[in-house]
């Protein structure tokens, strides 16, 4: 697996702010990974992914030092079209990202920009509508859909461009529970079926941790942790102090560890947690 994203000593400060949003960030991301990004509010999560997409510095005003490289190329040298071919981006507010008047046009818009022909656009619309269950909504206005459907349209419009990296910035934060489910289901499908790197910023740590190959913790504009889930959750207290909600299985295993009942690795899998609990119970019973 090769490095596709390299961030070297990146510091960014928005104009009219007192302190930098990101401070001396260094990060390497390899291809075909699912990366979860979490952290408290205002910690710099969105700023970090905006830097990877190139929204910063291309579309924001501020002070930028260090560099972000995508596939070895400095993002400052890449134009909007090239960046769109490399990285797709889904915003938190589904409505904020619509640019067209029907779902079908919305899906086609990005592909038109990267120079695809009409026939290929049609094929890709059919493909992406199928995997995101939008086949019956193509003729509708994206504004007339439910929250979950809107976010599915936003994700589909990005997938249709078939970028190598997809960033989802808190895609479920404005959705009801059903909408959240549909988005997480699509993310799971993307991970299973599509050959792409996915970076997802998310507050719902439970589901994020289960999907992620690695997790990033952003705090005060710095990357505090970058590790596989089993190592990421080794210090639960620190996460709780930051106001984060670690997955229920992690909290449970942490309590077992504190009680001296468990010393193994942390896991976010409910099934594995049940097995651990059962083995502890069995051990206790045999001791008694």
């Amino acid at each position: 697996m090769g490095k596709i994203i390299e961030i070297n000593h990146l510091t960014w400060q928005y104009t009219d702010t007192e302190k930098p949003a990101l401070v001396d960030v260094n990060l390497d991301i390899e291809d075909n990974m699912f990366i979860g990004v979490c952290g408290p509010n205002e910690s710099g999560k969105t700023t970090l992914v905006s830097c990877i997409k190139g929204l910063i510095p291309h579309n924001f005003i501020g002070s930028y030092t260090g560099e972000v490289r995508l596939f070895g190329k400095n993002i400052r040298d890449l134009r909007a079209k090239e960046l769109a071919e490399y990285v797709g981006f889904v915003f938190a507010d589904p409505e904020a990202q619509f640019t067209s008047m029907s779902v079908e046009e919305e899906l086609a818009f990005g592909m038109e920009n990267i120079g695809l022909g009409s026939d290929e656009i049609r094929e890709r619309i059919d493909w992406v509508a199928k995997i995101t269950n939008l086949e019956n909504l193509l003729d509708k206005s994206p504004y007339d859909l439910s929250g979950g459907q809107k976010q599915r349209v936003a994700i589909a419009s990005v997938l249709a461009m078939q970028p190598k990296i997809v960033i989802l910035d808190e895609p479920t934060s404005m959705l009801d529970p059903m909408g959240k489910d549909s988005v997480f289901n699509i993310c799971a499908r993307m991970k299973e079926e599509l050959n792409m790197t996915i970076i997802m910023v998310e507050h719902t740590m439970d589901r994020l941790a289960r999907l992620s190959d690695r997790l990033i913790l952003v705090h005060n504009g710095k990357i505090e942790r970058y590790a596989e889930p089993e190592h990421f959750f080794e210090n639960v207290d620190e996460l709780v102090e930051m106001g984060l909600n670690p997955p229920a299985s992690i909290v449970f295993l942490d309590q077992l560890k504190r009680a001296g009942l468990y010393e193994g690795p942390m896991t976010t899998s409910v099934e594995e947690t049940i097995e651990i609990a059962q083995s502890i119970c069995a051990r206790k019973e045999s001791v008694q």
């Binding site: 997409k53 929204l55 291309h58 579309n59 134009r79 909007a80 079209k81 960046l83 769109a84 071919e85 797709g88 981006f89 915003f91 507010d93 904020a96 990202q97 619509f98 640019t99 029907s102 079908e104 046009e105 086609a108 818009f109 990005g110 592909m111 038109e112 920009n113 990267i114 120079g115 695809l116 022909g117 009409s118 656009i121 049609r122 419009s157 461009m161």
Partner: peptide, 29 residues
């Protein structure tokens, strides 16, 4: 606020004022 959001959305979808080259117009088909 929307003007910022929409300009970000256009950038993300690969559109800029300086875009050059022919673009297909799918909807006309």
């Amino acid at each position: 606020r929307r003007s910022d959001e929409i300009s970000n959305a256009l950038f993300v979808k690969g559109y800029s004022l300086k875009s050059s080259g022919k673009r297909a117009d799918y909807i006309l088909t």
